[in-house]
Design a protein around this nucleic acid. Sequence first.
DNA 1: GCTTGAAACTAAAACGATTTAGCATTTCGA
DNA 2: TCGAAATGCTAAATCGTTTTAGTTTCAAGC
Lengths: 344, 344
Amino acid sequence: MARGDQRPVTVHTIAKHVGVSPAAVSTVLSNRHEERRLAAATVEKIRAAVRELGYVPNIAARRLRTHDPEVRHIDLGILTTFEAPLFLVSRALRQVQRMADARTDPKRKFSVSIGMFHAGRLREMPGLLNASRFNGVIVTNTLPDDDAFLAATALPYAVVVLGRRIPNYFCVLETPGESGRRAAEILLASHRSQFVVLTPALLTQSTAERAAAFCATVRERTGRDPARVIASSFVPASGAEALRAHLAAGRPCDALYAVTDSLALGAYQAIRDGNRRIPRDIAVVGVGDHEHADFFDPPLTCVGPANDTVAEQVATSLFHLLSHRRVKPVELHVPPSVVMRVSA
Amino acid sequence: MARGDQRPVTVHTIAKHVGVSPAAVSTVLSNRHEERRLAAATVEKIRAAVRELGYVPNIAARRLRTHDPEVRHIDLGILTTFEAPLFLVSRALRQVQRMADARTDPKRKFSVSIGMFHAGRLREMPGLLNASRFNGVIVTNTLPDDDAFLAATALPYAVVVLGRRIPNYFCVLETPGESGRRAAEILLASHRSQFVVLTPALLTQSTAERAAAFCATVRERTGRDPARVIASSFVPASGAEALRAHLAAGRPCDALYAVTDSLALGAYQAIRDGNRRIPRDIAVVGVGDHEHADFFDPPLTCVGPANDTVAEQVATSLFHLLSHRRVKPVELHVPPSVVMRVSA
DNA sequence: GCTTGAAACTAAAACGATTTAGCATTTCGA
DNA sequence: TCGAAATGCTAAATCGTTTTAGTTTCAAGC
């Protein structure tokens, strides 16, 4: 063996190794050897070589060769991080799919997929820079590093950024500051005085803005800043832990704003564990990014991006960019929707 | 215009239309016209033609041409339906990614993506049959139609089926019947007598098996079949509605098995609305397919696939198939894990 | 008048697979 | 013994794009 640093093995490599033509190898690989009458012995030799050399087909070549030249194939991607919860993209995904279905015809097919990158390492995503993976993408859940990378790069295809503001990109995001302000107003309206904002340690643009606007509004109306409780991550357990510590230390809290619903879910647990009642002892406002906010006990009052509207905007923008290339970058603001349930 | 049923436009089409070579078009498309000194007027003409003809680049060709021949690119996919909740695949996804990362080196890159198909229409997924999209896939959340399609087809690449049993495929699934039996045992152990099983109208293989095994066990021990409550879909709201109707009709229930956690979440709401307490009045057992079963109130007792184990098995199998092609199909059973929380 | 250089392009190869048409042999039937 | 049919393979084109290595034209410099 010892074929250390060769180039990857192709059908040619195998053909040479066995002493046949690439055509024969291809025939065997696609299990067509019966109808094309290859000798059983040859088939076996080729199969053995394929296994021995560890052949992996080149998808791009295969796709280029086998596609029907009459139909255009358009690849759409939703790019998110491994670290972010997947449901955050599901609305956008479904909306893109719906619009793609509406535009599908015998000469035009779409595939919509979710591409994943490690948070902060968008730049390493294969094929992003040379436009060799997608005809258009929606990028979301980026970290500041990724934002910086995008800002410094002009991607030569359709890109819509979801939930962030990045210069020279088509961006769709909630109206800046609006969520935090409305959340504060709801809690202020129920005559609370001990305000707390629960955030993850690592803030994205939206979560940072929510927290900032909330604090600004509370300060403006009460003269005092809310207490800030910081969860180590964005999962419920860390939210629970952080708030539990806050309450256990005897620090006051009768109005809580959680900048994501996962954290709110954790907060619910901490509040129950501390024998307080929602909303009697502590009013809670969340964001509405969780599919099941309605099934929280009590149902969670939310101020947050109108997800359906955002999804629609983002998908519409993507298809718009796809058809009219080189349109001016636009920043679309979607005002938050307020769903008053029981928790505040 | 009126170029109705032509073939899709390529760089050649544009080149001919403008009266330049494909090379010039390509140069403009990749924004390299400055360094390659194309005349500004030509650039503009090409740009205009690109827009006018509605050019869409062929991703496969671009990728084939631009990839570094020294590195092998391996495309892995997790195939699920638009209809199924995305979080069902997140564990498998993360595990595949982890193993891919471990196998990544300068000559070997992976991309892991989620491919979506419409439930029951897996056969229509572009590139599935001719192996021109993925080097290996994990297929999950299939409906019977999809299963039939798979059973009738020999896909010429690495395929692992998650949560189903399909002849001639590498399948990973929970030990058949085990979940339902254990769930029944838990409820029987707390001396209940009015058993109810909550299922969606459209049963998948696993949900059907859970329900069947649950009923069989209850019948065997009590001589009576559990009542069957059927939700119109798998979302919490439909579970709530179905159980609410059951309770409102005055029909008995002191032990509930919900075959998915989404339905359990809905059931919780119906039970609260009916002024019953969990587990005092009604004991509930769920499946553990929801990320937040621990944050239900009260926390949900679950019997279900040990998701981490399943994810590990499924990812390991995929990479195994990828390296040793043509291994015998195997059916891997993962025994359910039981997490006793508060609800039963 | 001849070289040099810049400007503005093009021809052709290459990426890796699949498939069509066809070329040698061998076998078989009459 | 000859032609036809079957057997077992290969050559070469092709998919659409990018890039390298030119080529041609014109202006400037000597």
